[in-house]
Design a protein around this nucleic acid. Structure first.
Lengths: 217, 217
DNA sequence: TTATTATTAGACCGATCGTCTATTAAATGT
DNA sequence: ACATTTAATAGACGATCGGTCTAATAATAA
């Protein structure tokens, strides 16, 4: 994994505007954001230098400040990119009509768990990481990160409402609250899973979550 | 709050070993660790430079590397200091025989909640912060941070066992697992509380936690 | 053809980290 | 009393790195 096959050509370029690459239209910016997601998730915002991202993608420094006005601006783009990427992943699982609603949620959880294992519990969730690192100090990021959580949360909420409609959980259940509870515990479990390098915290939380859901009534 | 009344004298000092301060015996190191706890909790490990700590305490750089061999060494001392400080806080509440076991846990939670509010949800928990920031990459810190969690966890576990003995919760309950679950959710709630600058996530989690405890049977 | 825009190359400044030497007071030994 | 060793501080230093800025040049539009 991560064989760096998706980066810009490492060929030595001349200065100035480069000759028009047929396939490459705005590819650079997207590559930067993609690498940013990868590196910020793994090492955090403060610890990840611009240079690291640039070197990993094979793009010179000058380009960076053409596409982004500052590191913060880049950070915002990275958060948006990750938020959208993960929202799509949520939809993929939670809107899958071939499974019952609660099973969809389980499927998502299993997929996310597999992702944690695949990266050896080194990355976790970019939004959780940046929230922890910058939520207390950086107001702009704080609002943006919370907005991403609310977006994800509403997708879980909709899935729980579907479960209600399907009679899987009680019609009295407060799905919005349960969805909020889900993300609180899930992010806490990811943090702990990084420390113990195991899915145990994830299993512990999700088992309790599903078991605690109000049964039909 | 934080009126900086607890730092070393800012007076211009001469070089060389300073005259023996009557009260001050090894005070410098302790001051550094204390400020370290404060600054690392607020801004994270990577973002907090040695110089910031030194300036805040009014100690020159030369002293730092007399007491600590490196920044990592300092980080370890800070983690230990915070771990011990918080363990004492836990004991203060959880071993308070004047309340029933579960009430002790509620008291601790209320106190921690008040602490979050006092700092306007800007700091959170040093162990959670550093775990998020470095748990995935820094092996030494990772082990140390997990050890702190296990220590805190055992204190919660003991309190839950006392609750069992008092008949407050079921004798079938797995107190070790419940204690692990408590910290997973609590840390997740802190993270979220920083983002929304409100105790709601903390309330949401703790209410669910207490309500989900297996009733006596 | 000329002007403008997009994109790159890399210099630049300041901050940070950790080391190093010099300095001086206390503690210790004789 | 004196010499020696140890504890603790002052602060300069070099290497590195992060973020910003200027100059250069090809594509594009007027």
């Amino acid at each position: 994994m991560n064989t760096d096959q998706d980066l810009k050509p490492q060929v030595k370029r001349k200065r100035g505007r480069p000759p028009k690459e047929v396939g490459g239209r705005g590819v650079t910016r997207e590559c930067l954001v993609r690498k940013g997601i990868e590196l910020l998730t793994a090492h955090g915002y403060a610890s990840t230098g611009i240079d690291k991202v640039l070197k990993a993608v094979g793009v010179p420094k000058g380009s960076f400040y053409h596409y982004f006005s500052s590191k913060d601006d880049f950070g915002r783009a990275v958060i948006d990119g990750y938020g959208a990427f993960f929202a799509a992943k949520l939809d993929k699982w939670l809107l899958d009509e071939t499974s019952a609603p609660l099973q969809r949620l389980r499927n998502f959880v299993d997929d996310a768990k597999a992702g944690m294992e695949r990266y050896e519990f080194r990355r976790g969730c970019l939004i959780g990481n940046m929230g922890q690192e910058l939520g207390g100090t950086h107001d702009v990021f704080r609002g943006q990160l919370e907005a991403v959580f609310l977006d994800w949360q509403s997708r879980i909420e909709n899935c729980l409402i579907a479960a209600q409609d399907a009679g899987e959980i009680s019609s009295n259940a407060d799905c919005a609250e349960l969805a909020a509870y889900f993300w609180i515990g899930w992010e806490g479990a990811i943090l702990r899973a990084k420390l113990v390098r195991s899915t145990r915290p994830l299993d512990l939380f999700t088992n309790a979550f599903f078991q605690g859901l109000p049964t039909k009534g």
